[in-house]
Design a protein around this nucleic acid. Structure first.
Ligand code: SF4
Ligand code: SF4
Lengths: 163, 163
DNA sequence: TTTATAACAGACATATAAATCTGATATTAA
DNA sequence: TTAATATCAGATTTATATGTCTGTTATAAA
């Protein structure tokens, strides 16, 4: 189970964060990004297509094609990515799942949950890729090294088996 | 899609809230509760069984059997119900779904999300059934009337068709 | 003791989300 | 122009969560 975002949305955020680290206009292929983030390629490809529709990324077909960010870092808010993939449903639905939820007859958590929900929304609206870029760089770097370690391990294991 | 809790957990909370409204030792059957809350009976029955294992409700078999709260209102926290059904996973997992998530290399939202997450946890730990009882009473009442309205509507519709 | 009732246990079915596959289209390097 | 490459669109498959069914067991009223 995911925390609040769907798996799609989590991966969308990861992919965009990845692109924000290389803030040039180079195009990264879906395959490339999926390898770096260690996530399924075809699934990511679909997600990137959705993001392209919402102009969060730009796609380019053909030999030197791939995906790159569609706007400057400071113009892409985290909430934009959430909206593109999951929509704003979670900010409108009842946290207890009651069906007839009106302002007159709110659920018992309405007030307290509502405040926290608004704080989450506020945070996602205030944070653009620019603000969190330094942290993104660190995080992506650390993933990279993890994957490298795994690769090295796999290779040495392979080697042992062949001997 | 649900907000943060699973459907199971949402229904568990609803059911316990319902029982808290009648703070006597009467036993309500799964069928009865499901009708009042307008939720699937067999599914609810399973959920109530899980809650019984965690002593949040007490079950009684046989003719006058059913379910009733296992402890006084002020000893059942909302977080206890969440723990029984969903566990504490959402309070430990990465909100962006990164795999290699360590304290040294946190995801870019670690700090801000962490604070909000802790507030949610705090809220669920502080609120017992006693604190929110008045609001629960109002909410359950309103659901009841909604169902009654629906019933009346359905009946008058039926009547019209027969005429 | 008999009968009705309701929880219980576990198998089964369905719906939804996640992931994969296939063929088509666009783009560029050679 | 040809070959290679990568996105794109949509169907299909798989996994997981949700919901249902069947028969059994415990309990209490008749
Ligand atoms: S918390 Fe408020 S807005 Fe959310 S579902 Fe409950 S009553 Fe509705
Ligand atoms: S927010 Fe922090 S604790 Fe949560 S996943 Fe990200 S790095 Fe880990």
């Amino acid at each position: 189970m995911t925390v609040i975002f769907s798996k799609k949305c989590e991966l969308a955020l990861q992919a965009v964060l990845y692109l924000s680290v290389f803030n040039d206009k180079t195009y990264f292929t879906a395959t490339d990004i999926s390898k770096r983030l260690n996530i399924p390629k075809e699934f990511l490809a679909k997600i990137l297509q959705s993001l392209a529709v919402h102009s969060i990324v730009i796609s380019k077909k053909g030999k030197t094609g791939g995906f790159t960010l569609g706007k400057p870092l400071n113009e892409i808010r985290l909430i934009d990515i959430v909206i593109a993939i999951d929509g704003l449903e979670i900010f409108h639905k009842c946290v207890l799942g009651f069906k007839g939820c009106t302002v007159e007859k709110p659920c018992p958590l309405h007030e307290k949950w509502g405040k926290l929900r608004d704080l989450v929304y506020k945070m996602l609206s205030e944070e653009t890729l620019l603000e969190i870029r330094d942290k993104s760089v660190e995080k992506i770097k650390s993933i990279h090294s993890i994957n490298n370690d795994a690769l090295v391990l796999a290779q040495s294991f392979q080697k042992r088996r062949l001997n």
